Simulated assay, not measured.
Amino acid sequence: MIDRLQALADRYEKLSELLCDPDVASDPKRLRDYSKEQSDLEEAYSAYTEYKSVSSQLEDAKLMQGEKLDDEMREMVKLEIEELSARHAELEEKIRVLMLPKDPNDDKNVIVEIRGAAGGDEAALFAYDLYRMYTKYADSQGWRVELMEASESDLGGFKEVIFMINGKGAYSKMKYESGAHRVQRIPVTESGGRIHTSTSTVAVMPEVEEVEVEILDKDIRIDTFCSSGAGGQSVNTTKSAVRVLHVPTGIMATCQDGKSQNDNKTKALQVLRARIYDVRRQEEEAKYAGERKSKVGTGDRSERIRTYNYPQSRVTDHRIGLTLHKLDAVMNGDMDEIVNSLTIASQAEMLEQENLA
């Protein structure tokens, strides 16, 4: 690992030189690529730099401990060794996590799909609540949310809603949300005060570039139709809504919330590309399912991942056994504790697998 860290440090320092080169400064693409690469290495470089410094100080302190010292100085050296040893261990663990293989999608924007599942109108209302939770969480992270497609229920919920979250690291924090979310509460339509259980499904997919998933014109069928729902005078009068079918896979995407047919086509192709990529990714993961049992799940939307219990103000993530008694805060976008716990669980699992390898 030390060799890998030294190679990383050498590359970071080389990038610093390149970024000072006038030829690079005058080339926007190289400047952008080198800046991003250095930014990606920065945390590991800083940790390794501190690790080397602490290691050197610890070695010096241990040498000093072998010298003839008075009682006061010996006690000071002992305390210093204890503090440096603790920091040394912390940095070792941090570096091990930083050197884990990176998910190439972590920095990408995400496309999120939420659908009301079991529970009818109540499931649709819960789908709206999840949409609101994610948009508020996105706001807290400084991300931008763009609605792509929505199908409303009679009571104001969402039968289905598709939206994009634009922001650095969006996928790294949102990727564990895929799965079935269960709500337990008294529905607004329930006159007898009984608690009902409903579910909504969430799928989180990284935004995919055209070069990552090539969609050939001959492989798609595009249909246009009149939009439905809110949208102004053009609704039901112009064929601005777009449905795109990828014939080889049978995967389809529809968009009607854009300002024009061209806008809707662009968004529908974005969703289609992400869905095709997601299917391929899950097929690849299925090949290794017997070897790798993930605590935080595979992203299968049929897997029950979390329960939101309103009477007890409780949120439970079943994958890692995390229970929080602050439902209102979570539904208002305070998801940091859940996201961080899932990330730590995933990293611990990867470290365990690395140790077994």
Rank of each mutant, 00 (worst) to 15 (best):
E152I: 06
F158R: 01
A150Y: 05
Y128N: 07
Y176G: 02
T135C: 11
I162S: 06
M174C: 15
T135N: 10
G142P: 02
G169F: 10
G157T: 05
S140D: 06
R144F: 07
A138F: 01
A127W: 05
D154M: 15
M148Q: 03
E146N: 10
G142N: 08
D139K: 14
M174I: 08
F158I: 04
G167C: 09
N166R: 14
M174H: 09
G169Q: 13
V161W: 05
M174S: 13
S140Y: 04
A138L: 02
G157C: 13
E146H: 12
E146W: 11
G169V: 14
W143I: 02
I165T: 04
A150F: 10
K173Q: 13
V161A: 07
Y134N: 06
Y128C: 15
L155F: 15
G142R: 07
E160K: 01
M133G: 00
K168M: 15
A170I: 09
D139E: 10
K175I: 01
Y134P: 02
G157D: 08
M164N: 13
R132M: 08
Y128F: 12
Y128T: 09
T135F: 04
S153A: 08
S140T: 06
Y137P: 03
S151M: 10
F163H: 05
R132A: 13
E152N: 10
M148P: 00
K173G: 13
F158E: 05
W143S: 00
V161L: 06
K136V: 05
K175A: 02
Y137A: 11
K159N: 14
Y131F: 12
K175D: 01
S153M: 07
K159M: 13
I165W: 01
G142C: 10
S153R: 05
R144Q: 15
G167W: 02
G156N: 12
K168T: 14
S151A: 12
D154L: 15
E146I: 10
K136M: 13
L130V: 11
E149L: 09
L155S: 12
Y128D: 09
S172T: 09
K175T: 01
Q141C: 14
Y176L: 11
K175N: 11
K159T: 04
M148T: 00
Y171S: 01
D139P: 00
R132S: 09
E160G: 01
E177W: 00
T135L: 09
S151L: 11
E146G: 09
D139R: 06
K173P: 03
Q141I: 08
E160I: 03
L147D: 06
K168R: 15
M164D: 03
G156S: 13
D139V: 07
A170W: 03
L130H: 02
F163A: 02
R132H: 13
D139T: 05
